[in-house]
């Protein structure tokens, strides 16, 4: 019950920040539109499909989730700055209720973002005359849940470890990295070499590839992708919980 009460507070706190709307909800739509315009100006003989809406939506959805990481980090690091959390540490709230209370509302925001991204993709696909399957998109949204949990975990980890100035900076670096190493803007497979190895070792490309494949109804590499994402998700969860619990005593005002 206390988890729900705290979740509600956190959701209000998130939704009352206009930047949440700009970055979490507006940004993916804008990116979809811009990249579609770029795609339409690429001559067909170039045979480049990376920016075609059915490829693009998975990439943008993952990119959008990296912003959710930023918001998780901001929420927690700002809460830690004031004495508000100290008040709650002296209340009957348990550590697990704090953690769940942070994860749940942000997960809701992440899910809303994925839904909006794919919904906008549908409209663009319809206008552009590209086939997109509804069931594929729904499955792709589901396939992004572990990725969402992972990004929230990293956001809460950085929000626990760093102050409200350093945490967003670190997140922006990861956001940029996720864009490049996630194969959102370029074809990782075609790059090959060391670049591909790095992409394969990190979760971002696996998240993008999984959601693209799921949407296309292709099962290639699904096991590998899921395994790696789940491993990163578990790591981010464990690390964020440990960092939060450790800082609970350190941050007391």
């Amino acid at each position: 019950m206390r988890t729900i009460i705290f979740s509600k507070r956190n959701l209000k706190e998130l939704l009352r920040d206009p930047l949440s709307y700009v970055f979490c909800l507006g940004f993916p739509i804008v990116m979809l539109l811009i990249m579609t315009i770029i795609n339409n100006s690429i001559p067909p003989e170039a045979n480049m499909t990376i920016f075609r809406i059915d490829n693009l939506s998975g990439g943008i959805a993952v990119f959008g989730l990296s912003f959710v990481m930023l918001f998780s980090a901001l929420l927690l690091s700002q809460d830690r700055t004031g004495a508000f959390l100290t008040r709650l540490y002296a209340s009957p709230m348990k550590a697990s209720e704090f953690i769940a209370g942070y994860y749940l509302p942000i997960l809701l925001l992440a899910a809303a973002q994925s839904v909006i991204t794919f919904f906008a993709s549908f409209i663009i696909a319809a206008v552009d005359g590209v086939e997109m399957s509804i069931s594929g998109a729904l499955l792709a949204i589901v396939s992004l849940i572990p990725t969402s949990v992972m990004f929230i975990g990293f956001g809460l980890l950085f929000g626990s470890l760093f102050n409200s100035n350093a945490a967003p900076g670190l997140c922006s670096i990861i956001i940029s990295g996720a864009g490049v190493l996630g194969g959102i803007w370029m074809d990782v497979e075609a790059m090959g070499g060391g670049f591909r190895d790095v992409c394969m070792a990190l979760p971002f490309y696996h998240s993008v590839r999984l959601s693209r494949n799921v949407m296309a109804g292709v099962t290639d590499n699904m096991g590998t992708d899921l395994l790696i994402i789940l491993a990163y998700m578990a790591a981010s969860f464990i690390l964020s919980v440990r960092a939060f619990r450790r800082n609970m005593t350190k941050d007391i005002k």
Binding site: I5, R87, A90
Partner: peptide
């Protein structure tokens, strides 16, 4: 118990009423 810390401890983006209701709910 309950306490008022030396530093002010309020949820910044909640209204005054919401802050009061929030704490009351947390303590049941």
């Amino acid at each position: 118990i309950n306490l008022s810390t030396q530093e002010t401890a309020v949820a910044p983006k909640l209204t005054v009423r919401e802050n009061l209701e929030f704490v009351a709910d947390i303590y049941g």
